[in-house]
Design a protein around this nucleic acid. Structure first.
Length: 613
RNA sequence: GGCUUCGUAGCUUAACUGGAUAGAGCACCUGACUACGGAUCAGGAGGUUGCAGGUUCGAAUCCUGCCGAAGUCACCA
């Protein structure tokens, strides 16, 4: 049983015996003692003052005395303004160190038999991955790791949006202008190659649209349909989509292509497969560089027709209703939302329809009754509605659905806009951070004597640590500003700072050799070591909390905290030349433990530790 | 306009979900290696937690009203 529970139960018992007050053990508030005060853990006494009708100081002192008397772990107390600070015994600290050392999985939960599916990344196939995907992927990946360690069977998945008008645009431009060129011919990463033709389409379309604007037809459209006082520029900006759908030659061709795709036209299908495969090959490289993977994949081309059986079911059960024009709707007003369309009047499905179907399919296939969707906060409403509808349908997994909603990323100059070319490409960014790490390594010369391959591996780990930590240390639900300069920082509150603590420990251990047989019996753990031990012990709670909240940033902050404590400790206390043999023996074991937890914790964030740097 | 989320030092942010004197990093100053790795450490300066009320032993956190930012309110995905 961990020390927090011991204290909680002790307090419960003390209150019961001293005051006949029944408190719930798990509601006893136990905090880590602030550094200004003596003690290690603090019990907040205020909640009992009213019921017991005695002053906080009186209760605190009485409980403190009781705890010291009956709990062998607790050797001292002081009570200040309703905060009961407790000091733990030397024996406790040694025993706790042994425990953490002996059970490397102390922060994990045993297998629960529960299944959870986590969906992240989920890109479109007409463009390469960008900064937004990186945030998404890192969040999804580390939540998967968190649930893994919480004893869940985790399935990592993504839905690939591989069909629709967007990929048709890339296909059309390639067909018209590329003259059969392949990514190899062009010397381009293959997903960038496909993205290039998407941009090329948009460019051709813009040219077509602009020249149309000058024609008599275009001008008359403006005079006929403009709103009061609307300028020509504003009108044509607004009209762009309508033009694409109704008048554009290129638009017509792209839509024609989509129709043929839906009709299973051989030529279009094989072009579609060729271009998508280029994209997948490119994505794989990026995923690999980021160190992430998936257990299963869903393709929108397979799932976009799903969900109609659920619509039938809903209609039969009067959860949904049909309007006069034949469209199907659900009323979510009792959930504080509007009515939502589920099937168009022509019987075709909408986004919601296929999401309903996909959710059901996944449950049928895997039996996972928990599901996390990692999707940007612009879709909050959609997921709220999706979950509400599934609940209405009585889906057995409805209670296990979560939307890990994260904020969009801004650049120092404002939003990322593809039209203005300010989208930060994932591959470029990865290359940048690794280059920055390379410069750092060259300056330091700590890795002399290693092979080029080893140096490169270290460089990669450092660069990626900088990038990943920078992105994941921020609360997911907050909108974040991405400063490219700050993201490659290697000093301060960064990934490499934490790696440095780890590398330092390994370096000491190398010099310390394998333990000379001295043992730590009788060693008196000092205050800095106690703080670190408290930190190490709390890892389990941090992980559980982060998983429950779907918030890996809590683990990131934990890593930083632990590394910082260690760096400080390192400067305060000698390890190899410790005061006594017992101290040396204790500390060598102790720092090894810290290194292990640092590595485990960073591993939850998908960040690897180098052995030298 | 309705709903949702957010507002903390110049900048980026934390605060164990209502607990003690709001912690860090960057940038700016001052110090610390002939001692285990200076990608480090110690110190300084920097705060009316958007504003105004309320709830209570106690509020950055909860409630109300303003102010500001973002998202969403499609037979788009």
């Amino acid at each position: 049983m961990d020390i927090i529970h011991i204290i909680q139960q002790g307090v419960q018992q003390a209150l019961s015996e001293l005051y006949q007050h029944q408190a719930k053990a798990d509601e006893v508030l136990v905090n880590v003692t602030k550094k200004e005060f003596e003690g290690e853990y603090t019990v907040v006494i205020f909640p009992y003052v009213k019921a017991i009708r005695k002053g906080p100081a009186e209760i605190g002192n009485a409980v403190g005395e009781w705890l010291v008397k009956y709990l062998e772990e607790i050797t001292g107390y002081n009570c200040i303004q309703g905060f009961l600070n407790l000091s733990l015994s030397d024996a406790y600290w040694l025993r706790q160190t042994d425990y953490l050392q002996a059970y490397p999985d102390y922060w994990k939960q045993p297998a629960t038999g529960k299944k959870i599916m986590i969906e992240y990344s989920s890109p479109n196939t007409n463009k390469p991955l960008h900064l937004g995907h990186i945030r998404n992927i890192l969040l999804g990946w580390s939540c998967a790791c968190l649930y893994d360690s919480m004893g869940y069977a985790v399935t990592r998945t993504q839905i690939i949006n591989d069909r629709g008008i967007a990929i048709c645009k890339s296909m059309l431009a390639w067909k018209k202008f590329a003259q059969g060129q392949t990514p190899e011919d062009a010397g381009m990463k293959s997903d960038h190659f496909v993205g290039h033709w998407y941009v090329r389409f948009e460019q051709a379309f813009r040219e077509e649209y602009e020249s149309w604007q000058a024609t008599p037809e275009g001008l008359s459209r403006y005079t006929a349909e403009k709103e009061d006082g609307e300028s020509e520029a504003d009108f044509f900006k607004r009209y762009k989509n309508t033009y694409f759908n109704n008048e554009s030659q290129l638009g017509a061709e792209a839509r024609e292509m989509l129709k043929k795709w839906e009709a299973d036209d051989q030529e279009i299908r094989s072009l579609w497969e060729k271009m998508n495969n280029w994209v997948y090959a490119g994505f794989d490289v990026t995923y690999k560089a980021l160190g992430v993977s998936f257990d299963t994949l869903y393709y929108e081309s397979d799932t976009y027709l799903l969900g109609k059986d659920l619509i039938e079911k809903g209609l039969k059960e009067n959860v949904f209703y049909r309007k006069a024009d034949g469209s199907v709707w659900v009323n979510l007003e009792d959930e504080g939302m509007d009515e939502k369309i589920l099937l168009r009047s022509d019987g075709t499905s909408v986004y919601m329809t296929q999401d309903l179907g996909t959710a059901d399919l996944r449950y049928q296939e895997t039996g996972a009754d928990q599901m996390i969707y990692v999707v940007g906060d612009e879709q909050n409403y959609h997921f709220q509605a999706l979950f509400a509808i599934l609940k209405k349908l009585g889906a057995p997994y409805a209670e296990g659905l979560h939307h890990l909603s994260y904020g969009m990323i801004d650049l120092p100059g404002g939003r990322m806009k593809s039209r203005e070319g300010t989208v930060v490409d994932a591959d470029d960014l990865i290359a940048d951070v690794i280059n920055e790490a390379r410069l750092g390594i060259a300056e330091r010369g700590e890795v002399e004597g290693l092979s080029d391959a080893e140096k490169e591996e270290i460089t990669r780990k450092i660069g990626l640590a900088a990038l990943k930590f920078f992105m994941i240390k921020i609360d997911p639900k907050k909108r974040m500003t991405f400063d490219p300069k700050a993201s490659v920082d290697l000093q301060g509150q960064t990934g490499p700072y934490i790696q440095n603590a780890y590398v330092r420990i390994l370096s000491i251990l190398r010099k310390g050799g394998t333990m000379d047989n001295a043992d730590a019996t009788g060693y008196k753990v000092n205050g800095d070591e106690k703080k670190l031990l408290i930190e190490l012990t709390s890892f389990a709670q941090v992980v559980a909390h982060a998983a429950r909240q779907l918030d890996p940033s809590q683990v990131a902050n934990y890593c930083y905290q632990l590394a910082k404590e260690f760096h400080r400790y390192y400067h305060e206390h000698r390890i190899l030349n410790a005061e006594t043999d017992a101290a040396r023996a204790f500390r060598l074991e102790f720092i090894q433990l810290i290194a292990r937890v640092l590595e485990d914790a960073m591993g939850l964030l998908g960040i690897e530790m180098p052995e030298r740097m």
